[in-house]
Amino acid sequence: MILTSLLYIDPGSGSILFQALIAGLVGFIAFIKLYWKKIVKLFSFKKHDDSN
């Protein structure tokens, strides 16, 4: 099957280049954010425990 078709929106060539550049960076940020949330959750759980 031929997948290539005419694009009916302008994706912006600069935007496509930009996607390639930021992909690694945003992946790293998402990774940090996920672990940061886990750490915050861990401490908030401990705090709840202490109050009991």
Partner: peptide, 24 residues
């Protein structure tokens, strides 16, 4: 970047990279 670049500069982008952008 949105107004820069030309189509000749466009490289292939892996699916994993798109997933990273979506997750962010």
């Amino acid at each position: 970047f949105s107004s820069k670049g030309s189509s000749s500069q466009i490289k292939k982008i892996s699916k994993d990279k798109i997933f990273s952008i979506l997750n962010h």
